[in-house]
């Protein structure tokens, strides 16, 4: 695979945290790439490390969390080797940008929309005149299809609806012409109808602006409609990556299959939903072998001895499971 096709490439990334209880291993990602122009989904339960991955890419980790080793290559440049100053000046907003799951909390309550959007624009385009800045703000608000931008930009966040806030946030995120957008559960706090509108907007913008997108979600159904490829994150480790169709129709990892079979669908109406037995791994005390071993119905002794290698099963489809050969695509209800 040519690395020039990738806008972002993560190699051997390990992120740990100091806690009073000891060192917590939060992320351990062997390899992950986002191809230029694609919408790549990261799916995982809450606590899997999805948001942390986003913050690691942007270099915005909390104080007690640190990168132990690895590389995050953005267009070939290792972001982990850059200073905060350089990240702020050249990468954040301008190269990689992000939208957040709670648009109310992500907009500053005491500044108007205009203040906040224009601040981002002027940061990355110094020397714009007042008029130019004003026009750019209007242009950005029109881009995210906010009606009546002249009026909207005079408002404070609390005067806007949830969907409008998320549009404002998207306009801020994109106003410095970044080419990689990280969407961290951007539609989670919204009504379903509003969700659809925001998703459509994101897809359109990706197309129009040539954006690559890292689409973080815990909603498999949602992600599968938007993304081209999906990565399954479990306890900080990527267990499976593949094209959406493959992941949905032909999931190879037991966890992916369990995850899919536990989703409510019309056919399962009236029947109890299968749940995955066992508890989520403790980041303070992670298993040596396969991270999913103690919950896996296909468990055998070798699973907890060695970490499964991360390998390509069919072109473009990667998997971390020792026994994947035995897992034939099967019906959903072999789990309990």
């Amino acid at each position: 695979m040519n690395s020039k096709d990738n806008v972002l490439e993560i190699k051997d990334l390990k992120v740990d945290a100091h806690t009073v209880m000891g060192t917590a291993e939060l992320l351990n990602i062997k390899h992950l790439e986002i191809k230029t122009g694609e919408i790549f989904g990261i799916i995982g339960e809450s606590g899997a490390g999805k948001s942390l991955l986003a913050l690691t890419i942007l270099g915005l980790l909390p104080k007690n969390v640190y990168v132990k080793n690895g590389q995050i290559l953005y267009k070939g440049e290792d972001l982990l080797k850059k200073s905060q100053e350089e990240l702020s000046q050249r990468i954040r907003g301008k190269g990689i940008t992000m939208i957040f799951q709670d648009p109310m909390a992500s907009l500053n309550p005491v500044f108007t929309v205009y203040d906040q959007v224009s601040q981002v624009i002027s940061r990355h385009n110094p020397g714009l005149s007042k008029k130019q800045l004003y026009d750019r703000v209007i242009e950005m608000l029109e881009l995210v299809k906010l009606s009546d931008p002249e009026n909207t930009m005079k408002k404070y966040p609390h005067e806007l609806s949830g969907g409008m806030r998320q549009r404002v946030l998207i306009s801020m995120a994109l106003s410095a012409k970044a080419d990689l957008l990280i969407s961290d559960e951007a539609t989670r706090a919204l009504d379903v109808t509003i969700q659809a509108g925001i998703l459509k907007l994101l897809e359109e913008l990706a197309e129009k602006l040539g954006l690559s997108t890292l689409f973080i979600s815990s909603n498999m159904a949602l992600a599968s409609t938007v993304c081209q490829r999906l990565g399954i994150l479990y306890a900080g480790e990527v267990l499976e990556i593949g094209r959406v169709e493959e992941i949905i129709r032909n999931p190879r990892h037991v966890y992916t299959r369990s995850f899919l079979s536990s989703l409510p669908t019309v056919e399962k109406k009236g029947k109890p939903l299968p749940i995955i037995k066992g508890i989520y791994p403790d980041p303070l005390n992670k298993a040596k072998g396969c991270i999913f071993a103690d919950r896996c119905p296909d468990y055998s002794a070798e699973c907890s001895q060695n970490k499964p290698t991360y390998h390509e099963v069919i072109p473009g489809h990667f998997l971390a499971c020792i026994k994947e050969e035995k897992h034939k695509p099967s019906s959903d209800n072999d789990m309990d």
Binding site: L55, L58, L60, Q84, L87, S88, Q89, I91, R92, G93, K94, T97, M98, F100, D102, A105, S106, L107, N108, P109, Q116, Q119, V120, R123, H124, L169, M172, A173, S175, A176
Partner: peptide
Amino acid sequence: NEDYIRASRAYGIKERI
């Protein structure tokens, strides 16, 4: 610790601002 501070950092706003 608020989200909007993290957001403004994510858009590259200068730390001073």
